[in-house]
Design a protein around this nucleic acid. Structure first.
Lengths: 300, 300
DNA sequence: AAAAACCGATAGGCTAAGCCTATGGAATTA
DNA sequence: TAATTCCATAGGCTTAGCCTATCGGTTTTT
């Protein structure tokens, strides 16, 4: 079955006549006859009742007509949708985010965008900062809220810094250094519970860098990939941790979050995209995100 | 655009490769290339990003893919629906009825049928008994609840009598003949408000026949096509009326409905259909209607 | 570093699908 | 009865869609 069959079929149904439809479609009547015979043969049921002088639908034909109209309308719609997306008037923006993005008021940005671009769907995909880079390259997401890019991605991806996220020490409530500000040198002999480098090289490397500037290399007791298990470990006395402030989803009563004295204790929160896959729609999303974030930054 | 384009398109989208799709569809890779180039040209937007080694969708392509899948599914569905209707498993039964049919417990029949044939839609069309005959011939309805057929339709249509509907005299409350039983001869000098012969020849002719048997031909004061205006006329003292009992939708306080003494004061309530357009679905509907009516008759 | 493998685009030829004109049978209209 | 209108069918033509083969480009293998 092809759309041609449906076009012919609906034309005949509309006109109530094969030859009438042929005139309307600017083809010979025999073409209509042949195509509809094929269609009926494929379906295995008569769609028309042919009696000389008058042509009407069978019950099966009436049922098929409803569907045929719907399909033809959908076909037009499909082309229209593709064109609108091509022009940047509609579509889906796939957004990568990670736990820490939520602290940055991403939800409010989403709401703002939804209001302004009602025809645009937003699809949110949770990924680690590192996963987002490759996802951007592969075109699995259009924009990523992630950490500063590793050098190997700098040529292929663009990124703009939205925020400097302070790194804090996470200590048991009763730790002598709490509540800070903490000098990292005082923590040199602690065990560290860090988040995996696979999740966010930027954070991991920054932690190592800070420790090294403080004159030691951290003794790593355990590595974890999710915030909740880091919290659990620290509470359990397994060690202490250093993490960006915004990655903490909820403050736990039993933990202290202590600022560091080091002035470069920050990791960047960036919005990244692939210039090679740029398109009008994601461009306007980025623009709005930037404006939105400036707005938030000024308020805060 | 043809369905072929959509089949090729979704295959490529699924396989992530032109040649892969070609293998799956058992055609040459060049055929895929050509057809998709045509499709993209018609839409006016690229649907795929071709880079050697990897082929992915553009944003427009992703949007189009959703629609394409829907359309292909609809096409399968359309064929399926037509086949089911052809086999009598689904479809729409278009039923003609007139005011009097409601008195015959048509609503309950509808409900019963709906329960048993959930996939079948019933479409109810109000028409006069006479309109139903031609509608049956033209295939505008599948079954009609109507009055006895005029002779000219007897060869083309079948009808089965469900009920004999007594004709009653409709008199002002204080009329001397009320509440009956009435001998028609007592009404010979009255003015009559009758319903139009165009609405129901059976009723009109029966009324004339009854009067003629009573030895007079009725003086017709007014002819009306709807019950409510007949009631209005009689209440206003314009005349009296003779109508089938079941065509009265609601009893009005100011009117008397009086049985006649004549023993043939009946018109038939019939179910009619066109044997030429018969199909399994309407056949089973008729069967159920018959059983249902027997049931009602026994109870009453 | 060269070779092999794989990708999609393109060219040229072939075939069959779809269209055309012409005709025929059936029913309606003049 | 003749003329008209309907749809089906036959036969021929054109072209759309498919095939094979090849090319340039990239990745993978050797």
């Amino acid at each position: 079955m092809e759309l041609r069959h449906l076009r012919y079929f609906t034309a005949v149904a509309d006109q109530g006549s094969f030859s009438g439809a042929a005139r309307r479609l600017h083809v010979a009547q025999s073409a209509i006859s042949e195509q509809l015979a094929n269609l009926e043969h494929e379906i295995g049921a008569a769609l028309f009742e042919r009696s000389a002088r008058k042509t009407g639908l069978t019950p099966a034909g009436r049922a098929f007509l409803e569907e045929a109209r719907r399909i033809l309308a959908s076909a037009d719609h499909a082309i229209d949708v593709a064109q609108r997306v091509h022009r940047g008037e509609a579509g889906t923006i796939r957004i990568g985010f990670f736990t820490g993005s939520m602290g940055m008021d991403l939800p409010r940005l989403i709401r703002t965008f939804r209001r302004q671009y009602a025809r645009v769907r937003l699809s949110l995909v949770e990924m680690t900062p590192k996963q987002q880079w490759t996802a951007l390259l592969e075109g699995k997401i259009d924009v990523g809220f992630t950490r500063r890019l590793e050098p190997e991605f700098r040529s292929e991806l663009r990124a703009i810094t939205l925020h400097q996220d302070p790194i804090v020490a996470i200590l048991p409530k009763n730790h002598p250094a709490a509540p800070g500000p903490v000098d990292l040198r005082d923590l040199a002999d602690e065990n560290f519970v860090l988040s995996s480098r696979d999740v966010s090289p930027a954070v991991f490397d920054k932690v190592i860098e800070l420790c090294s500037e403080a004159g030691f290399s951290p003794r790593i007791a355990s590595i974890s990939s999710v915030w909740s298990s880091v919290a659990l470990m620290v509470q359990a006395g397994e060690g202490i941790s250093l993490l960006p402030l915004n990655e903490q989803q909820f403050r736990t009563r039993d933990l202290a979050f202590c600022p560091l004295k080091a002035k470069n204790a920050f990791v960047e929160f960036v919005m990244a995209w692939s210039p090679r896959r740029d398109n009008p729609l994601t461009r306007s999303f980025r623009q709005l995100a930037l404006a939105h974030h400036r707005d938030v930054a000024v308020r805060g």
